[in-house]
Nucleic acid binder design. Structure first.
Lengths: 139, 139
DNA sequence: GCTTGACCTGGAGTGCGCTCCAGCACCTAC
DNA sequence: GTAGGTGCTGGAGCGCACTCCAGGTCAAGC
């Protein structure tokens, strides 16, 4: 299967402009062209694009994605290095998840407090221990 | 307790410039000043700053933080509205966590694959089903 | 009284990751 | 053969969230 740039954009969830941008900055290899000079994307191209979106979604900076793409271009010999990049990134993502979860705890606390403020005449955040430092009655 | 801008920056994890920036864009109320015109932050100020960092950490855009700050300034009557903002944001954060987790699965799959490529002569990603669409042999 | 250092202001600059645009080429359908 | 749709290029512009800077004030210590 091959895809026009519009189809590739649709299937990858990226915009047409972003696809061309990714090509300009060497995140993706220049795809094949048809007789009229238009880009033709293969399933492999699409797979790589989809994987790139996973890296972006998880906050990998484009610089590092470019480095990963560079290594990939160099072939199997760079597998170890690429593995290390992904492992490091995986650790970052897990840390980020933990960070988000602890922020959700704070949100839960605040929401619960608003619950009581909205429901009754109970003054906000009285007689309670706050779940984070310094933050009593401040939100 | 009160704090100089340097102390407030240190304790909130924000930079001095960011504190002044947050004040300029009405995220925080102008703090008190000492006789020399220098900012003096209270524990309450600090608590609000810390809470703001939670919202930022979880990706709330500054526009929405400003809206939340505006409502907070209007007093308890806006508690319901603020609660709704936090609830919506909480849902966003939980969705984000799920998204990250599913990306971690992809990373795990790739890392596991590299494991085998690096360890032996096993050709990459052969005879396996890929965990996401279109992405065989593409990374 | 002079240096030092923290802080002040208004405004300009930065880095990131796109996003948009003008002006042109090509292919298809009518 | 022409109108419309899709795509091309190089380059400019944008939104966000800061970050930096010049030129100045102020208080403390020597």
């Amino acid at each position: 299967m091959t895809y026009s740039i519009a189809e590739a954009a649709h299937r990858s969830g990226l915009s047409i402009d972003t696809l061309r941008y990714y090509e300009r900055i060497d995140l993706i290899d220049p795809p094949a062209r048809d007789s009229g000079g238009r880009r033709v994307y293969t399933d492999d191209d699409l797979g790589w694009l989809v994987f790139l979106t996973k890296l972006r979604t998880t906050g990998m900076p484009i610089k590092l994605m470019r480095e990963y793409a560079r290594l990939r271009r160099l072939g199997e010999g760079t597998a170890g290095e690429r593995k290390r990049i992904l492992e490091d990134h995986r650790a970052d993502v897990l840390a980020r998840i933990d960070e988000l979860r602890s922020c959700v705890d704070v949100l839960d606390y605040k929401i619960d407090n608003y619950e009581r403020v909205v429901a009754g005449a109970c003054p906000p955040e009285t007689g309670e221990t706050t779940p984070w430092t310094l933050a009593h009655s401040a939100g």
